[in-house]
Nucleic acid binder design. Structure first.
Lengths: 150, 150
DNA sequence: CGATTCGTATGCATCGTGGTTACGGTTCGA
DNA sequence: TCGAACCGTAACCACGATGCATACGAATCG
């Protein structure tokens, strides 16, 4: 929740955008980590989750690396979120007193609320694709840096 | 992010529901903490945020305690979320390599995505009020415990 | 066979979270 | 007037999650 020092989603989006925008066949985790500001092991762990979701593929060995498994405009941020986040609760739960029936009811209701909120997030994130980000990034990259930058 | 061990929102909703459902004038933080499965200091910290949002009020001294400042059916969970969570990022950010313009663009885009997701959560949460929870809880409390209970 | 890169386990430092204790201020009632 | 009951907040501590560093094995290419 809430206040996540959790960078997995951001790293995943960052890496996927790079993979979508490159002309290379594959990119190494070390290169991706350098751009994302993380270390290669962390990037590989995140990419492992994305591979289980069949969003990316990897090739070991010399000249190995990572590549997109699907067209960038079919990969929504909602899928990325689900791949990285799973079914973890979004809002956070708590442990009410077990002897309090009221507390149990509230916990149940909060579970519903949490699921609805998680679905709302996924639907909102589904409105953006990796291609959208790669296109925007590339477009701005070609501009001569607007005077109103920052 | 989101794997929040953060219980503030849940505690806040729990406590507000209790305040909405009681016939007492005020409830002490010790009583609220007992029901919510937390300690009084934590509850007071959460209630402090809710008071700053003018959702609840407190009265010190003997026979003091907490009470709702507004009608329960006008307090949405979206307001509670905002009061407790503030503007903290929902999805989590990361620190891209500063020398990488692509990374900066992605971070900027992720900021937009995060704000949109946070707004989606608030709008979804705004569909439920404390009164809804208090009513459901009370209604079920009066039932003779359904046979399919767990 | 050696270099490169993935895959994963392990240990570690850091930080957020919540519990605990403590102390001061406020209100009520004896 | 004084003590009890509460709020308000600070300080410290323990626990768990997160991410980094290192290491080692497996796979692939030259």
């Amino acid at each position: 929740m809430a206040r996540p020092t959790n960078t997995r989603f951001a790293v995943a989006v960052h890496v996927l955008t790079l993979l979508a925008g490159t002309s290379e066949e594959v990119l190494s985790s070390e290169l991706l980590a350098g751009s994302a500001g993380a270390n290669p092991v962390h990037v590989r762990r995140v990419l492992g989750a994305l591979r289980r979701a069949e969003l990316v593929g990897s090739r070991p060995g010399a000249h190995g690396g990572w590549q997109l498994e699907r067209a960038a405009d079919t990969v929504t941020l909602g899928e990325v979120w689900r791949a990285v986040q799973g079914d973890d609760p979004l809002l956070g739960l708590h442990g009410a007193a077990p002897e309090c029936t009221v507390g149990q009811r509230i916990q149940h209701a909060l579970g519903d609320v949490d699921r609805r909120a998680a679905r709302a997030v996924e639907e909102e994130l589904a409105r953006t694709t990796i291609y959208d980000l790669a296109r925007d990034t590339r477009a701005r990259e070609l501009e001569p840096a607007p005077a109103t930058a920052l």
